[in-house]
Design a protein around this nucleic acid. Sequence first.
DNA 1: GTACGTGCAAACGTTTTGCAGCGGG
DNA 2: CCCGCTGCAAAACGTTTGCACGTAC
Lengths: 143, 143
Amino acid sequence: MIDTNPTALRDTLREAGLRPTKQRLALARLLLGGGHRHVTADDLLAEARAQGVSVAQTTVYNVLHQFHRAGLLKEVLVESGRTWYDTKTGSHMHLYDEETGAVSDLDQDPRALQILDKLELPDDVDVMSVDVVVRVRAKKNQI
Amino acid sequence: MIDTNPTALRDTLREAGLRPTKQRLALARLLLGGGHRHVTADDLLAEARAQGVSVAQTTVYNVLHQFHRAGLLKEVLVESGRTWYDTKTGSHMHLYDEETGAVSDLDQDPRALQILDKLELPDDVDVMSVDVVVRVRAKKNQI
DNA sequence: GTACGTGCAAACGTTTTGCAGCGGG
DNA sequence: CCCGCTGCAAAACGTTTGCACGTAC
C-alpha cells in the first residue's frame, strides 16, 4: 500500500520519474489516497472537477497512461471502447457485470492464482500480465 | 465442429433463428468454414470483399453480434477500441502480443481450465464466461 | 532558462444508429 | 405480402494528436 500523505505522494511520483505537478498530485491523491478503486478516464475527470481540481481531459489520459507505465495502476480491458484502471496492482481477477458495466475485484483462492502464474508458455516471450475476467449477470429472481 | 457444407450452414443459421441470407451465408462460410480463426470486423469485411462477396460494413457488425449471441462466436476483448471474434467457442485461453496486436489460442493443461471452471463465485450471479488473456512481448534476442 | 507538462481543439478509428429499400419464406 | 435484413450516410463514442502556452526545478 502506498503512503498517501502529500509528501509521500510527491516522492511516489518522483520515484516514477514524474514531476509532481498540481494535476498529477491531485489525481494521485484521488487514485491512491483511498482504498482500492476501479475508474475510467471519464470517472476520474468528473471526480476531479467535482472536487474543484482544474484539469483537462487530455491530462487525465496522460496521467493514467503514465501511472500505468510506472506500475501504479493496472489496466483492465473488459469492454471494447473503454479502458478501466485498477489501483490494486497485485495479481488478482476481475468480475464484470455485463448489465451494469460494473467492475470489481474477485478475491480468490490463492491456488487459482498460483496456477495462472505457472502456465506453460512459449519461451520466446516475456509475460506482461495474465488477466482473468469473469463475466456475469445478476440471476433472475426465481424463488 | 460445425459441418460447413452449404446446406449444413443453412441449418446452422436457422437453428440460431437467423434467416440464411446471402450475406450471412457468405460470412458464415468464411468464419466457420475453415479451421479456428481470430478476426476483427474489419478483417472479415476485407476478406469478404476480396472474395467478391457484396456486403456492407453495417451488416458485418450485425452478423458478428448475431453469431456471438447465438453462441457461434466468442468475443475476445484484448484492446480497448477493437473487438476480436474467435471461432473456437469452447473454454480456452488467449495469448495477446502487445507489439503486433496478434491474438492466438493458448492450448493449456486442462487442469488450469478446470480450476477456472470451479472458481468460488457469488451465488446471486450467472457466469457468462471466464476469459483469460496472457499479454506477452517477444523477448529481446539476448543470445 | 529549459525541458517537461498542460490544455484546447481537431482528428482518429471503431462501432452504433436512423431510415429507405430489398428479399426470403 | 410481410417482417426481417441490408446498406448507406451520419453520428456517437472513447481516445489520441498537434501545437501554443505554462510551470517545475
